[in-house]
């Protein structure tokens, strides 16, 4: 596989095929997330968190994907001069979730629960370096870089998917992409707050 397809696979894949692969990745990530307690509760958001019913682990990445795809579709239909297809936008955005799959294992690292437990109830001046072992700090930094790598990779795929499926000029592409990513940290969370399980 050529390196350029690792950066932009959408020259080769889009539409229904991309959608099916992407949905499979979302389902798989939700199952692994359920087992490891990892949440994808926002566009490009990954973290370990509270234990919830399985359906929440599934709805979080699903709503985030639907949110980003819907915004990109609206922008595409308003500003693009090409005959764009919804299936390409939704398909490429689902496919862009695939790089996040390895990040669904981060909740399995106990350090992500141990450190917050040690810090809970402490004032900032009470926190000292001796409270944490070297291996805890090393693991924490490793996880941070590990997650960041896959989040950036997914973000690049989201951008290329948006660009290819809407064929928009950069003057629309970049601001609406940034706006969707930034709002995508908050809006899916807000939408999820209406679902009570």
């Amino acid at each position: 596989m050529k390196l350029k397809y690792l950066i932009n696979p959408f020259e080769k894949i889009a539409g229904i095929k991309a959608l099916l692969f992407g949905l499979f990745a979302i389902i798989l990530a939700s199952i692994i997330g359920f087992k490891t307690n990892t949440h994808f509760d926002g566009v490009l958001s990954v973290h370990s968190g509270r234990e919830t019913p399985y359906i929440i682990y599934f709805l979080e990445p699903l709503i985030s994907w639907l949110y980003a795809s819907t915004i990109f579709s609206i922008v595409g239909f308003i500003f693009s001069k090409s005959k764009i297809r919804l299936i390409d936008i939704f398909g490429t955005q689902a496919f862009a979730f695939i790089p996040l799959l390895p990040a669904s294992f981060i909740g399995a690292f106990s350090v992500l629960t141990d450190i917050p437990e040690k810090l809970s109830g402490l004032e900032h001046y009470e926190i000292t370096q001796n409270m944490f072992t070297f291996s805890e700090l090393f693991t924490l930094i490793f996880i941070a870089f590990f997650v960041m790598f896959f989040v950036v990779w997914s973000a690049i795929w989201m951008f290329h998917g948006f660009k290819l499926s809407t064929n928009l000029h950069n003057k629309y592409l970049i601001p609406f992409y940034i706006l969707t990513i930034v709002s995508g940290f908050l809006v899916p969370n807000y939408l999820l707050s209406f679902i009570n399980f």
Binding site: F10, E11, K12, I13, A14, G15, A18, K81, S82, K83, I84, R85, D88, L164, S165, N167
Partner: peptide
Amino acid sequence: MNLSYPSVRNRLD
């Protein structure tokens, strides 16, 4: 051409 549909459509555009 072994390309995705939107790639070809964008070339046509």
